[in-house]
Simulated assay, not measured.
Amino acid sequence: MSSQEHKMKIWNLIKDMKIGMLATRHDNDLRARPMYLVQDDYDGTLWFFTDLDAEKVFELEEDNDVCVSFADPHEHIYVSMTGVGRVIRDTTLIESLWNPFVAEWFPQGKDSPNVGLLEIKVTKGEHWDMDTSRMVSAYRQTQGAAGEVPTQGEHEKFGTTQ
């Protein structure tokens, strides 16, 4: 996917956001829903808990291409990651990733037969870090007024096709 250094950069951008919008395909439609990130680090794979009877599980059986996007509008950080998703039931991994937030969604506990994990192997993506302090915003407006294309902060693509 990308270098270890870049993976750390991506992790530093998304680790505090926790909620990503997962998009899957349902027939000819794209559907997105919020998902809670449950891991403590990032190595090119994203992990989310899921109910094994959820519609997204069946959608992944038909088409496992997914997109997960994260946004922090207060910090002006946006990340979009594309990859391949699959659902697994690994009790050791479930045990290691279980947390009180997830427990709220699964009242029968981590041993419930419906508890599964959504694994997303990220293949590519891009991120934007738009520093919009007042001074930077004023400078960008001045650039635009002068007919120059204002800078938009940092934008970088990563992965298999850049």
Rank of each mutant, 00 (worst) to 15 (best):
W47Y: 13
I88N: 03
S3A: 02
E59L: 08
Y36A: 15
D131Y: 07
Q152A: 11
T82A: 11
H76M: 09
R140W: 00
T160Q: 10
D27F: 02
D16R: 00
V149N: 13
T92M: 10
W128Q: 13
K9N: 06
L52N: 11
N64P: 10
T91H: 15
D27V: 01
Y139Q: 07
E59M: 11
T151C: 03
S2Q: 03
I14K: 01
D111Q: 09
D43P: 04
L52G: 13
E61W: 01
M21F: 14
E104Q: 11
P100F: 14
S96T: 03
L118F: 07
Q152D: 09
H127C: 12
F48T: 06
M17F: 04
L37S: 10
S112F: 04
F49Q: 00
V79N: 04
V68M: 12
I10S: 14
L117P: 13
W98Y: 08
G144N: 13
H74T: 10
Q141H: 09
R140Q: 11
S133F: 13
E55D: 09
K157M: 03
M21I: 15
H76Y: 06
Y139R: 00
C67P: 08
L13F: 12
M21N: 05
P34E: 00
A32N: 11
S96I: 00
T160I: 07
L22A: 08
A23E: 02
V38W: 03
G125E: 13
T45S: 14
F48H: 08
G125R: 07
S2H: 04
R140V: 04
I14E: 08
I10E: 08
